[in-house]
Amino acid sequence: MEPIIAIVLVLIGYALGSAKLINQGNEALVERLGQYHRKLKPGLNFIVPLLDQIVMEDTTREQVLDIKPQNVITRDNIYLEVDGVVYWRVTDIEKSFYEIDDLQQALTNLTTTTLREIIAQNTLEETNAARASMNTALLAQLNETTAQWGVGILRVDIQSITPPESVRKSMEEQRAAEISSRAEILEAEGRRAAAIKKAEGTKTSMQIISEALRSNPESKEILRYLVAQDYINASYRLGESENAKVVFVDPGKGGEMMDLISQMTYGEEHVNNGENGST
């Protein structure tokens, strides 16, 4: 009876020693007598006790690598402080264990070095404007190296690019100057458009008055009234101005003014004919 109990206990111990449970999202590597044997998938797996040994169990889920602020220099010799985030995943656990010693440290060093190389190819202005393209270039270059480590880089985000304080002040002053310049340009264009519309309105008004005078010569008195009204309004506005000056106009010049207006509306020949007829 005792040998049977001993055999049962040995079988139970063997079963417990050979059964290995791998959690979902993980994989494990098994070595037999010091050499790679096989890979264990999620779920219940069995190995040979004493001969087989699990040397590594790691996740195949997406992981995040935080790149701490690094001092880099641009093509135009501006020192920047840059940090970022790398999203990566183990695609081949066998390579990630046997091809590289410290995977996390290797990824950090590789990302930092590649980031410095890419920023060194751009000026400060290009670095601020082309962050998306730098992320793409960084992603492509990292994957070229990490593929042999059994790692896939999913996404790279450059989080912040911080120039020195003196450079930031210069950039702020430049942006303020650009905003002010655009505002002045818009204001000048607005004044120009208003002047054009006013001139077009004046031209249209003169055309209407000219047509009215041609069709109805008796409307000359109306024109005299309009001119006198504009003269009074202009004098009133001039009197309100702080820099107003009093100007005396010879009343006898009124006829010359009307002749000038008539010349503009009727034409020089009509005015001359009127003068010849009156003499």
Score class of each variant (00 low, 15 high):
residue 206 M to L: 12
residue 151 V to C: 05
residue 173 E to C: 10
residue 113 T to N: 09
residue 177 A to T: 12
residue 177 A to P: 08
residue 142 L to A: 03
residue 139 L to H: 02
residue 160 S to Y: 14
residue 206 M to N: 09
residue 204 T to Y: 05
residue 153 I to A: 06
residue 183 A to T: 15
residue 102 D to M: 15
residue 168 R to N: 08
residue 161 I to G: 01
residue 154 L to A: 13
residue 183 A to C: 05
residue 194 A to V: 05
residue 113 T to V: 09
residue 154 L to Y: 14
residue 145 T to K: 05
residue 128 N to Y: 02
residue 137 A to W: 05
residue 133 S to F: 04
residue 193 A to D: 05
residue 178 E to P: 05
residue 130 A to M: 12
residue 100 I to F: 11
residue 194 A to D: 06
residue 122 N to S: 15
residue 207 Q to S: 12
residue 122 N to G: 09
residue 106 A to G: 15
residue 167 V to M: 09
residue 183 A to K: 13
residue 104 Q to R: 13
residue 145 T to R: 01
residue 115 L to G: 00
residue 103 L to P: 04
residue 178 E to C: 07
residue 113 T to E: 10
residue 169 K to Y: 05
residue 139 L to K: 09
residue 188 A to W: 04
residue 145 T to W: 00
residue 206 M to D: 07
residue 170 S to F: 10
residue 125 E to T: 15
residue 151 V to T: 03
residue 139 L to S: 08
residue 176 A to R: 15
residue 123 T to I: 05
residue 120 A to M: 02
residue 117 E to G: 02
residue 119 I to Y: 03
residue 125 E to I: 10
residue 183 A to Q: 14
residue 145 T to Q: 05
residue 174 Q to H: 13
residue 167 V to G: 00
residue 161 I to T: 07
residue 193 A to W: 04
residue 174 Q to C: 13
